[in-house]
Amino acid sequence: MSQRAWVAAAIHKIEADFNRSADTHLIPLALAGYPGIEVYFKDESSHPTGSLKHRLARSLFLYALANGWLREGSPVIEASSGSTAVSEAYFARLLGLPFLAVIPSCTSPDKIAAIEFQGGRCHLVDDPAAINAESARLARESGGHFMDQFTYAERATDWRANNNIAESIFKQMAQEPHPVPDWIVCSPGTGGTSATLGRYVRYREHPSRILCVDPEHSVFFDYYRDALAGVADGSRTHHCGSRIEGIGRPRVEPSFIPQCVDAMAKIPDDLSLAAMRHVSARLGRRVGGSTGTNFVGVLLAAQAMQAQGREGSIVTILCDSGERYAHSYYSPEWYRSRGIDTEASDARIQERVEGRGAALEVPVAGDMTGCA
């Protein structure tokens, strides 16, 4: 089979797989302390590979195929904190390609098992900041292709339409009391989702604003704050990797476009994980830590709207299932070993959901007041 014929057959397989898949659900979740403000979770855990990264992996494979970067039988290598690797392993197996995930050694064993379940192999690296360089080296030595999600996430996704997450959200919101969200809250891993959302709302002339919430050990918030001040330094780094798997980075990634974001907040890990537990209890199923980070952002947006006397809607993302974190976020020993106080943070989140106590005070950059 010629290279062009193989590429055509590979694209057809991915498109056929997409045609077999349903869209993900939009789940309402009432906030008792914020009457008139409707909250919705876009449940990306219902994808075949269980996370938001399924959309990204599909886009990355189509982008690489259209660019002629993938060849029959050649290995695919990706640098990942886990979820993207699970999804890319799925698509690599669909196309009959070997897949190698380069992941931090601290990645949860459940995610490693999920990568291997999809037919991938794992290459563990002690330094999370080194996974890109190690992936590039392995690709060179094996004659394979390094997908490089952190560079290509924002350009591989068709942000105008083609059933991207933004288009899906607005279609599903059409019959709701406030069909155009005041805020869409997301968190940065590659930066691809915030870029897609920010571009789409501008392209479609929606007044919705994008709040991007960064975890405690990550560089994106600091870079964004610097960009607002006109002194952004793309070489800025953080001394360690994020404890909230799937989001946050120790370096500024090329796919993070600060101009696509209207405001950012930096969320302490204890609040992210308390919010995760709250959402899990409300939905009756486990969600991941990044969903907790997003929910803290929802509370910040709801606080701001309430202070301004405004009603409306907020949409955020349920990034993945919490079943992959049974050995970490849902293990009491994990919290004890890291000195994280769960009781105080659980109480703080519950207060804010009910509209009691002082407002959440976390570092915020950008405008959280008024309309776009």
Rank of each mutant, 00 (worst) to 15 (best):
C212I: 00
D214E: 08
E216N: 11
E216I: 09
E216Q: 14
H217A: 13
D222Q: 07
Y223M: 05
Y224K: 07
D226Q: 14
A227F: 06
L228Q: 07
A229S: 13
G230H: 00
V231H: 09
V231N: 11
D233S: 14
D233L: 13
S235F: 02
S235K: 10
S235W: 03
R236C: 08
T237A: 14
T237R: 15
T237K: 12
H239K: 08
E245C: 05
G246T: 03
G246D: 06
F256Y: 15
I257H: 10
C260H: 12
D262Y: 13
M264Y: 12
A265L: 01
I267D: 11
P268A: 06
L273Q: 09
L273W: 14
A274S: 13
A274H: 05
R277N: 14
V279P: 06
V279K: 04
R282G: 04
G284A: 00
G284R: 00
R285G: 08
G288S: 09
S290K: 06
T293V: 08
G297M: 03
G297S: 02
V298D: 02
L299M: 10
L300A: 01
L300K: 00
A302Q: 09
A302D: 13
Q303A: 09
M305T: 02
G309S: 09
G312E: 08
S313G: 02
